[in-house]
Design a protein around this nucleic acid. Structure first.
Lengths: 110, 110
DNA sequence: AAATTATATCGTAATATTGCAATAAACAAA
DNA sequence: TTTGTTTATTGCAATATTACGATATAATTT
């Protein structure tokens, strides 16, 4: 079907999955890495940086914005994108909340 | 097209994206959470836990196994699944490697 | 051997995602 | 007003994902 049965899962599970999904494309990782590297708000110099067509990059930016990782503010004809620092940390803690649940490495024979 | 242009990105970017993608479905989050909760290897009691059909859960398990987060060992007619602890920690550090790149919260006016 | 149990795979249908060309929209500059 | 610049949206086409029923596989049990 291609449709995820979100109603079968908790809000937390759905949110974590949605965030992971947003990170689930190398172009979106590259976008974030570039924003982290220059550590600033940049207008679409990403189109020059990333070897994909401008509409494609625009879509990836929307996907990251949709989960709150990015924010964009209009500045003349261009848009300044940057990382939403509060959300960024929140998301990191959401992921670590999952990862840290692993306690010991009890030998289970696997 | 629906096909990701992996050749345009680094191995690291592709790996991180593939891992995130594997976490990008609530059923797979639920599977991991359950494995973490019982902290043991379980045969497919997941089929009873998660409200999806058995073939669907099997596919999700394969997806998690494909990125190394799970390992399964055959035990009679059933399969014991558990988290690969080494890989688990490795993946956590990969994600934190991205998240920790965010240094300051310099005011960029966005 | 036949039946049972547990899991994987196949086939199929529906929806989602990715990508690009073309175009639109919004603003700036001449 | 016209021209250029930048970003978003639309309209495809191709591929991927999700889901389930049916079936296959593999080991255990009777």
């Amino acid at each position: 079907m291609g449709v995820t049965k979100t109603e079968n899962f908790t809000t937390h599970q759905n949110e974590l999955a949605a965030l992971a999904k947003a990170l689930g494309h190398p172009a979106r990782i590259a976008i974030l890495q570039h924003l982290l590297k220059v550590n600033a708000c940049i207008g679409g110099e990403l189109v020059a940086e990333i070897p994909l067509a401008q509409p494609t990059i625009s879509r990836h930016l929307q996907a990251l914005k949709a989960v709150g990782l990015l924010q964009g503010t209009i500045s003349g004809t261009s848009v300044n994108y940057c990382i939403n620092s509060a959300r960024w940390r929140e998301v990191q803690q959401l992921f670590n909340g999952l990862f840290d649940t692993y306690v010991a490495e009890q030998d289970c024979g696997c």
